[in-house]
Design a protein around this nucleic acid. Structure first.
Lengths: 342, 342
DNA sequence: CTGAAAGCGCTAACAT
DNA sequence: ATGTTAGCGCTTTCAG
């Protein structure tokens, strides 16, 4: 028993103007005389009119919607990035469609379809590990201007992207430990093949080398970003004969799980071991000891990605690709690092 | 220089049939002869055709999109619920639009517009504190069948909803502490006015009372769900002259922050104080001591909400409202609770 | 089972 | 500055 929604026709009738005028008054108010504008607005209010997006989308060939692709919807790491994205999008009248790669794969959909079938005007990809076929379809000239990577990225194509200064962040972490007197410094890596893992590891190695410290292979412990990975890394650490006095972890949650597991084995942080994380998740400040970490501004990351995407979409001129925006990171010293005891 | 997308027309031409037949072959394959179906499918493949959603949406007056409303996009608590929702939606060909109430408010949009203007066919609301005017507009007969609450809910209208057995969960927490010998049991509440806070507090009080323990007002510490709230609660706790030997927290992150802060003041958990949380976030298992908590199945919560929404949307018969689906919770005993020492 | 034709509601030429 | 008109691409009566 749904009463018919009001249309431009209704508004036009009540306002005593043509539908075209109504449309103009709404989307390009300056192309209409002040008087008509008022009349139309009044009619809109009276009738409670709302433009029908489906109709507008069909006509304009735009959806005013952006798709955000996460590797994994359940990963809480992305929430703040989402907020940053949404914050800018909603300000520009865009809606945010969110999908996880797991679900996309399972449902047999293709990313490119969202762009082709009019569901989204562009997309922000937070997953640096898209399957090869997805990437190559997205690099088609029709689409490449509608895609922006954020946080992670892919080296297999030169999409514009927004990312943290991962390498510099890693260097800062190592430098911090060095300045505290540590010389035996280890690193727990992120997942193998992940771009972030690589950057952070390379940054750490570069800084160590620059400081005249030869990185020791057994102190670079391969892991992943997750909590279980941190725990496993701790177990590997415990088996080391000669242990480092400081560790740089590729992620905060990994660091938190590592510390927790080490504490169970009576290794005290920071007394026995200094630990630096990466991310500065909210929890970092609230664990004991509070975690020293490299902060990345996830809100900003998302926000900048949204800005960049909107630029890409709107810009008609041919663009320079491989635009990379880097968001600064910064060291947040807390209680999980301490000067090396003599 | 975007080459024109292929349309039904193109497919119809290559298949040598009418556009109507193509449409039928695609959406209602059984209403078409086997031969034609094959021909059409082949043509679709050849041309790389994809239905244009904007056109379909306009024509069918459906968007095949659901809107999910979070109170706060940056809150990581919701990610797993989102995954549950998306998991079901994507299986039914629906897309997921996500928005945070903060952004909605800031952009001056109204929730109801999403339903009216054809952006969404229905919505899942995870925010029990919608403004009054939003709620009343949503209760209009045209819309009430398109809305489902999940996790939180509102008492100001009888929308169908999916929620955890918060009250029972709270009772289980108290009972667990009681069974460990505790008689001096406190509670850190969630934010005032929040439906979850109320249920959990009421459940705790009811169980205490049932066990013959009179709840003590100073042991019910008002707080919120967040990390800072947990820390503040710890500070309140420290000021107590006569302290409880066990505490039930309204959320895990609150409990984690509380324990962390207490540890700094040399209160040992579980030796000096047993703590039970609520939620079973992934971190709960990885803090020290591992947190005893009441698990709510957030994936399931989201999944069930999506199922319920799809039912509501598709069902044409008049429905029984106020349908409430309750998801069981369960106690996960870990190391933050221990028998009361004599 | 299939085709012809109308039209969802809007905007953008084009004409005035 | 405003109105007329066509048509975005699809689905769905209605005929056949």
């Amino acid at each position: 028993m749904s009463e018919k929604a009001t249309t431009v026709q209704d508004v036009a009738r009540t306002a005593g103007v043509s539908t075209a005028t109504v449309s103009r008054a709404l989307s390009t108010p300056d192309k209409v005389s002040e008087r008509t504008r008022e009349v139309v607005f009044k009619a809109v209010e009276q009738t409670g009119y709302r433009v029908n997006r489906a109709a507008r989308n069909l006509r304009t060939q735009r959806s005013n919607t952006a798709l955000v692709i996460l590797p994994d919807l359940s990963n809480p790491f992305f929430s703040e990035i989402l907020e940053g994205i949404s914050d800018h999008l909603s300000g520009t009248g865009y809606s945010m469609l969110v999908a996880g790669m797991t679900q996309i794969r399972d449902s047999g959909e293709r990313l490119i379809d969202y762009l082709n079938d009019g569901r989204a005007d562009g997309m922000i990809v937070l997953d640096g590990s898209l399957p090869q076929d997805a990437i190559s379809s997205l690099t088609a000239p029709t689409h490449r201007d509608k895609i922006v990577f954020a946080c992670e990225w892919t080296n297999q194509a030169d999409f514009p992207s927004v990312r943290s200064r991962n390498r510099q962040g890693a260097r800062d972490a190592i430098r911090h430990l060095y300045d505290l007197g540590h010389r035996k410094i280890g690193h727990i890596t992120g997942p193998e093949g992940n771009v972030l893992s690589l950057e952070r590891r390379d940054g750490a190695v570069a800084e160590l080398t620059g400081l005249g410290i030869a990185p020791r292979a057994e102190w670079v412990i391969p892991a992943g970003f997750s909590l279980p990975d941190g725990r496993k890394a701790a177990q590997r650490f415990l088996k080391l004969k000669d242990r480092p006095t400081a560790i740089f972890c590729a992620s905060d949650i990994q660091a938190i799980a590592l510390i927790s597991e080490l504490q169970r084995h009576d290794i005290r942080v920071p007394n026995d071991l200094s630990v630096v994380g990466f991310d500065d998740i909210e929890m970092a400040e609230f664990v004991t000891p509070a975690l020293t970490t490299i902060r990345q501004d996830r809100f900003q990351l998302g926000y900048a990605a949204a800005v960049l995407l909107m630029e890409c979409i709107s810009k008609d001129s041919s663009r320079d690709y491989a635009q990379i925006h880097q968001i600064p990171t910064n060291l947040v010293p807390r209680d999980s690092t301490a000067p090396l005891l003599p």
